[in-house]
Design a protein around this nucleic acid. Structure first.
Lengths: 209, 209, 209, 209
DNA sequence: TATGAATGAGTGTTCATTCAT
DNA sequence: CATGAATGAACACTCATTCAT
């Protein structure tokens, strides 16, 4: 189903490949967070992962593979956590809960999301589609959430509004991470969730006198 | 007021400095757009600007200076264009017009905004604040727009909602640029403006049955 | 008599050492032929030989050992095949036959000879003498062939001419291999043998008017 | 006429390019002679040439370019020196002189020829044809020498013999270089010339009793 | 004996920056 | 002021070799 872009490893033992790659990704995320993909050395990544540069290259082919692996892993983690969301209920209340749930995940995975957000563009034309596809899947989850409300007779909304609304929710989740320098000084994540939910649901009009 | 971070130039003739930097920025934007800051070499920038690498370094100290100059220039352009907005009227209609106006600018300056958006993080800890400050100023313009509505008695909204709403508008403008791969296939900028305005003003509740 | 340079093996079972080394040489020749000694990795050789890199190193000490083994083996094969030559007859006719016989072998072992020819120089100062000695032995066979003619009263020739003539024959055999890009388009091996024999025996003078 | 494969240089000043490349080639030949192309480092070449690794790469694109430049330069030197040969006379005597002349050049350029001889095969499929073409041109000079004798009525010889004879002369010249370990202990270059001329002209038959 | 994961010195190459002209 | 040749630190990546299992 989820066809992945395979990253070649010289080492055969798949269990070991997973272990090493996990170490690698953990180290890489920390470094990318700190200095970005381009300013991070493969040697630094190897060191952060706890093995030699030679070993690193037993598990990847190019530096860019690491970035792909990182992005891929972050998406998987996010998606896995999003599985907890109840997509089926189809009430506005469950939509609100879904949003809150998602925003909380974004808050917890702030660093990872920031990394992926800022570095994904460095992926080659080859790897990019795989990452974008995953993003679309996640946007798709919000679309589903909204559509269920419609099917459930709680909402009437055309496709274009649905699509954009889903995008907005998705971006607002990321926004908490990539604009934290501006947002955090004003509100906590809980407040952020409340405020955004207000704006999303009520709209400006609601604030009219 | 607008204290700029000075970028050192060896050349004294200020008029010349401006000319050369303009050439430099134009070339750099095109290149950054195409391959990003890190994959662009100073030589390429010099060539694109129409002078030698030696000359380039008469007008800057480091490669990062160029990035700062580029970001700075893009912000200036955006702000200059935003001056056309009528901040004073204080009606919801003028807020809508302001949003549309801004979104249109973002559409026209798509490439520049994308560049700045993706590369700004590569700025040194030294230069970043200057850029963030400019961003805050722009968000501030939307805040003003909203506050005028309140002062004008068209709206009642607390500071936190105002602040977040301004951020949302600002991000949604940029979003048209950095998510065009997903948005453009579904709607034109005109449609995007209408849809976003709908969502911003009406909120989800409005779509309730 | 034929003191070989010993190549150390960790494995004791000599029969096994021979088996493994034969596999190894076969694989290595094919690879050297294709990409040369330096561009071939030990891993590739191990794989081509059908065992792991670890096993490879149970039978050699360094990569260069493989080259030595390859050269050694090729020489042995050539010499073995040259045993079929009748060195004793001592007639010009048998000299001609010997040359033809040798050229045919060179034609059949073209690839191997080319490999050895081009890569032997990569042998260490340590191993080179062993290989050169074998080459001298082969040249010596032609010398013997010529000397038998002299002893038989068919020829009068001093040592220097004998020595150089033997070298020429030897080199002309190799030449068919290492200059095939130029020679093959003009003649077949049979023609080559006839032509070279003509030139060797008749000399230019014979073509004088 | 002599279309060369262009090797890219970043530096524009053609005079300087020539100077630097001459330094580079001189250094490279010495190193290749000693340790071969593959075992020689670009850094070593730069150092031997008297400049930094960075500078080296201002005048070439890849390490292989150096090898091409070296081969190219050697051929040019050899050919230039061969211009001194009188190709036109058309007597057997002048053919002998030509051979002697060529052998002497090969003796003097022994090291260079050896290098080119052993390393040319490392040239890419891209560069090889250019080098082979030059070699054919040199063989062609001997062909001309022979053909002139024929035209002059001194010789009757068909095309295949002419071609092979020219090749033989060419290879015997190189042979003095690449088999010096075997030849030098037996004779000087002067003796080598006399002996080879004897064998070439008289042929074995002449030594018959 | 056989395996293959681990190692790290070494390699080709790039590129920001300097400075003599 | 303008130029562009020179520099060398730094980087991604390779591969012969080892050694625990």
């Amino acid at each position: 189903m989820n066809k992945k872009r395979a990253v070649h490893a010289s080492v055969k033992d798949e269990r070991l490949v997973n272990i090493r790659r996990t170490q690698m990704i953990r180290g890489a995320v920390a470094l990318f967070k700190e200095k970005g993909f381009h300013r991070t050395t493969t040697r630094e990544i190897a060191q952060a992962a706890g093995f030699s540069i030679g070993t690193l290259y037993e598990y990847i082919r190019t530096k860019e593979d690491i970035l792909y692996l990182v992005c891929d892993s972050i998406y998987d983690q996010v998606r896995e956590r999003l599985q907890g969301m109840d997509l089926e209920k189809g009430t506005l209340e469950s939509l609100k809960l879904g949003i809150a749930y998602y925003f909380n995940i974004m808050n917890e995975m702030q660093d990872e999301v920031l990394v992926m957000y800022q570095e994904a563009k460095s992926l080659s034309k080859d790897a990019l589609p795989y990452v974008l596809k995953k993003e679309m899947e996640m946007v798709g989850m919000f679309e589903t959430l909204i559509r269920r409300c419609i099917e459930n007779g709680e909402l009437i909304m055309d496709d274009q509004h649905i699509d954009l609304l889903a995008h907005n929710i998705f971006v607002q989740g990321q926004m908490w991470g990539f604009r934290r320098w501006a947002l955090k000084k004003n509100y906590s994540i809980e407040e952020y969730i409340v405020l955004q939910t207000n704006l999303l649901f009520k709209g400006i009009a609601e604030f009219e006198i």
